[in-house]
Amino acid sequence: MNAADKKRLLREMLYARRFEERCYEAYVERKIGGFLHLYPGQEACAIGVMEAARPGRDYVITGYRDHVHAIKCGSDPKVVMAELFGKETGSSKGRGGSMHIFDVEHRFMGGYALVGGPFPLAAGIAKAIKMKGDDDISICFLGDAANNQGTFHESLNMAKVWDLPVLYVCENNMYGIGTRIERSTAVVDQYKRVCGYDIPAAQVDGQDIETVHAAAKTAVDHVRSGKGPYFLELMTYRYRGHSMSDSNAYRAKEEERQWSKRDPIIILRDRLVEAGELTAEEYKAMDTGILDEIEQEVIPFAESSPEPKVEELEKYVLAENDPWVHGRAQ
């Protein structure tokens, strides 16, 4: 990875951070409703893995902490923000909300709100890819706590039995909502749980995007070459509570302080500065540029977009004018 790529990744992570922080403010201002699960702290995971894949071409599916995954696949941040604002111009036309960002054109196959729900969907996407004979792959991002659902085991088993081109990425932030992993999970290292399915697995630092990228490259190459599924565990940390309704009182301040020293943006920034590839001024300008873009383009678009029409409440429940509903000649 050259210096220009690293700077671009730094900007993408910083953009994700500022985007999510702005979501927080908009939530407090009551511009965003419902549940809101934010990504700060975990940026190197989605961005690092997708950097090793083909964003917009490989299929991606995830849970409800989904804004950054969609943006990395190619979604317009304005359209994502408009969805959070519940607007007709949003990615799901205001019908989905934060937990259900979809962008099928960029092959972001959705955010889903049932923990563990996407595991089999990702395997099914991989099955379809295999039937069509394409060299795309299916990538599923979920957290460590999802691995305690039955769908985790059912899906790994099927993915291996049928050698499906699916990469399961586990973003291990050590908490399932508010319960720490040791208190809910018999085997804390998630990659070890996968050996029961004879699927290759690795665990790496999820805070250093270069490490993530290198590990993801190995994983993606394995899956794309037709060798079947792969499981990649990224050790990470979310700075905020599980969602906006989470007081975050269950975590020790000392733990949070320790992890703040392992911030993915600061790690890469400092490395670039040390190598003489970035100056403090450049970084500041980058940050200002991002904040301006969000404030001058993203938020105004979401604010000024129209609400969905109440007359269209029942649109999208079923297909419109599907001829097969009425049958045909006998």
């Binding site: 089999p120 996407i125 099955k127 379809a128 039937m131 769908t151 059912e154």
Partner: peptide, 10 residues
């Protein structure tokens, strides 16, 4: 649940 979900994904 697994194979139904797999079918849906496909």
């Amino acid at each position: 649940n697994g194979f139904t979900g797999l079918g849906i994904g496909a």
